[in-house]
């Protein structure tokens, strides 16, 4: 693998960033464990991209195997306890957690189901929590059974899940939750424009308004106008497209020259993704014809 240097660089960057962020974490009252978890998550995400082979790729798997082989249940349990404690601490120290406040104001501490811990399969225990925005009628437990809501609607439901981020299932669940959250957020943004509860708006259907263009009307911005929505979609599409940056080179330029249609550029300090692998370079030269 020719991109060994890139792997080395990435490992150095991770170590340095973690090192230099330690003070920032301390200043924010965040414990060392969270910093270590950040490093762990970062490494995991990076390994998943398969842009290079990293030194921890083998080591970490071994560690995981050992621990889960020895005492899987105890491990899960310990993890669970630890996470719960961390959350408790967070709430106590930080105080500013929006989670706590909103839940307390509502007088309902989420729908924190005591039995949910037990009902979840052992592979999917505890690790994060989620704000669920739109109200559902009830809660669907993994078994397929539902707990219907009998105490009237709540403006904001807080459902706390905890998922073991080590297990594959846990990671999948986390991903699902995150995408669902994103969707919900998008939905929330769209709801004001989409849900028309005051009857059909006849005004715009008349020819007069159509001729003037719907963008002129004040209403048209609020209601699901043609101009409004596609913009949003475009932006989201762009963001989505930008997410997997493939075949891209990020670098600095020293000089860019053009003679007629021939371009020459001198680049440096670059990191490039080429056909799924990452490369770094100190200097690069490029020749191309327009």
């Amino acid at each position: 693998m020719s991109n060994k240097e890139c792997a080395d660089l990435y490992e150095r960057i991770i170590n340095d960033v973690i090192q230099e962020s330690r003070q920032d974490f301390e200043d924010s009252g965040i414990d060392e464990q969270t910093l270590m978890d950040l490093r762990k998550l970062w490494r995991e995400r990076l390994s998943k991209t398969k842009v290079a082979t990293f030194s921890w790729d083998n080591v970490e798997e071994d560690e995981d195997d050992n621990s889960s082989d020895d005492l899987p249940l105890a491990q899960h349990h310990a993890q669970t306890m630890m996470n719960s404690q961390q959350f408790a601490n967070l709430g106590g120290n930080g105080g500013a957690g929006s989670n706590d406040t909103s839940a307390d104001i509502g007088g309902v501490h989420g729908l924190h189901l005591p039995q949910s811990d037990l009902a979840l399969p052992t592979t999917a225990t505890i690790g994060g929590d989620e704000d669920s925005k739109p109200a559902h009628g009830g809660i669907v437990l993994p078994g397929g059974s539902t707990i219907s809501q009998s105490d009237g609607p709540i403006p904001i439901q807080e459902i706390e899940f905890e998922i073991d981020s080590r297990s594959e299932l846990g990671q999948q669940l986390m991903k699902q939750m995150q995408t669902q959250q994103k969707k919900k957020k998008k939905l929330m943004r769209l709801i004001p424009t989409q849900s028309q509860v005051d009857g059909p708006f006849d005004d715009l259907e008349s020819d007069e308004d159509d001729d003037q263009g719907s963008d002129l009307g004040v209403d048209s911005d609020e209601i699901n106008s043609d101009l409004d929505d596609p913009d949003d979609d475009d932006k989201e599409d762009e963001e989505d497209n930008d997410d997997p940056e493939t075949n891209i080179m990020l670098c600095l330029y020293d000089r860019v020259q053009r003679v007629k249609n021939k371009w020459k550029c001198n680049l440096k300090d670059g990191v490039a993704n080429i056909e799924g692998k990452d490369y770094t370079f100190q200097k690069a030269t490029g020749d191309s014809e327009w």
């Binding site: 660089l9 490369y279 100190q282 490029g286 191309s288």
Partner: peptide, 15 residues
Amino acid sequence: NLKDVKSKMSFKGHL
């Protein structure tokens, strides 16, 4: 850290 990288690269193509 990118300043400490050593390798070089070159490319040709159609702009």
